[in-house]
Design a protein around this nucleic acid. Structure first.
Lengths: 299, 299
DNA sequence: GGAGAGTCATGCCCGAAAAGCATCGCTGCG
DNA sequence: CGCAGCGATGCTTTTCGGGCATGACTCTCC
């Protein structure tokens, strides 16, 4: 039995007339007649009652016509799904992201993407920097929206920068540093630092090393495992913190932010992916939307 | 695209090896190779990555393999359903029945049938005699388990008798007639009759006419629309009733039952169907079970 | 590094089967 | 009774799936 038999039979069942069905199927009537006979022989059940004024369906024919129609529809849908998958309009995407640095571009990118390609499910995973790199390497994540990993952490990954965000100092609003319009690196050394956990944010710590290069190392007050606990510690006067300027958006007025005058340290925010382990078309599609959103943020 | 393409591709997707799949499919490897190529060309998407040590599935291939497998399973199921329908092992049956006269045979028949042919759904409709004949004629019922309709009511129907059940007199336990071991027809005339509604049970009334043939017509106390209200009226002393002996089973000890000595009126209980309007194989199958149950009841 | 085994693709031919054409048989209608 | 409309049948043509031989490639093993 082939799909041809189903197509032919379904058409005959709809028209109840071999001649008309044959014309619609662009085949000669005898060919259609024989194919339907073959189908009935193979199933071993009469599906049609031939009369001189057309045909009628038997009970079996009615059932089979309904089932055959469903099978044909499923077949078309299967092909369409595969094509949509290849076009990046179908499937599921695992995306790891660093919440604070991507706050400006991820929501608009996601909104536009979901509207344009509703059949792709995007699963967002709010993760620490090192968790994203690990997830990408293990193939659990397809894409990462993240801060650029440093050399040692970038093994087997590629990173495409989209935004450069300067570091700023965050402190409690009543902190001495908050009285200055801007600060210099050596002034930071007077205050203990609230930082992210070294275990999960090794890149952040490398960056700190760069900032304080040539200076005596800063005192570390406490290591936090997320932005929210870092904010709480800083707001509580436990110390000051170095964060990307975008974090200001997430944190709001609970802290004061001051730019750093004499350093050129930026965080680069962008798209990470594994070197091997394909990014699906849907993933590439998603990247386009992220890039587009990043461009808008720059202005 | 034909089912052959799906069968071939699914097998290749399972073996990840054209040569082995071809052997399993009983075709030569080049033939298989070409059919899968044709499939990919038609869909316009690469489903397989050919390597020198076999093939691997692309993401699209994985999706399509799963969908194709489902389609093939559905196809087999569709054919099996149609065959089962033709064998009378699948489908839905609308059966009208008269509850009291069939109390002995319908439950065991139904139980055995449901066990033997679980994929047939039997919808039972508890109906009055005239409703069954009307339902059969309109094609809403496929079979009726009923008392034989008289000539005027049997137009366009066939009836196959299975049981002959004598009529008995039902009266309240404290009724004068209940003191006699058996009664004669003329004794009934002294008491008003509780009967079924003439509109819905015309055959029942014809039968009453036969019983009282040559006698003065009986007084009718009240017309009931179901056995349960008839029992209530009789038990309340409103009058006596003529019912099939089998009704004793349904009613129990609320009433007294006495056989009638000098009449030969029986009710015939059996299977009714429309003359035209096919009975499905499942229906025929069901009839067999009913006949079998009826035979057991006789003994 | 070369031989060999295993893999899938390609070229060519054959045969099965689907399609086309002409025609038949049947039935209902005018 | 003849004609129109329908599906089936007989025969021919065409298409295409399948088989065989072989090629191209790569990995393994000696």
């Amino acid at each position: 039995m082939e799909l041809r038999h189903l197509r032919y039979f379904v058409r005959v069942a709809e028209d109840l007339n071999f001649t008309k069905a044959a014309a619609a199927l662009r085949v000669a009537q005898p060919a259609l007649s024989r194919q339907v006979q073959d189908l009935e022989d193979e199933i071993g059940v009469d599906l049609l009652l031939r009369g001189p004024r057309g045909v009628t369906l038997t009970a079996e024919g009615k059932l089979f016509a309904a089932e055959a129609k469903q099978i044909l529809a499923n077949t078309d849908a299967a092909v369409e799904n595969v094509r949509a998958l290849a076009r990046g309009e179908y499937g599921t995407l695992q995306v790891g992201y660093a919440p604070s640095p991507t706050v400006d571009m991820l929501p608009p990118a996601l909104a536009a993407f979901r509207k344009a390609v509703p059949r792709v499910t995007v699963n967002l995973h709010d993760l620490a920097g090192d968790e994203i790199t690990a997830g990408l390497r293990r193939g659990e994540l397809e894409l990462g929206l993240m801060v650029r990993p440093l050399k040692a952490n970038a093994e087997g990954l590629t990173f495409e920068p989209l935004l450069r965000v300067p570091l700023v100092v965050a402190c409690a609003p009543n902190h001495p540093l908050a009285k200055l319009p801007r600060v210099k690196v050596h002034q930071l050394l007077d205050h203990p630092l609230v930082v992210f956990r070294r275990d999960d944010y090794s890149d952040y710590h490398h960056m700190l090393n760069e900032v304080f290069l040539g200076q005596s190392p800063p005192r570390i007050a406490v290591e936090c495992d997320s932005m929210s606990s870092l904010v709480t510690e800083v707001a509580g006067g436990r110390g000051i913190a170095l964060v990307s300027r975008l974090a200001e958006r997430v944190i709001g007025a609970r802290l004061a932010f001051r730019s750093i005058q004499d350093t050129e340290v930026f965080q680069e925010v962008g798209l990470g992916r594994a070197l091997k382990g394909d990014v699906t078309p849907a993933g590439e599609n998603f990247c386009d939307y992220v890039r587009h959103a990043a461009k808008k943020v720059k202005r």
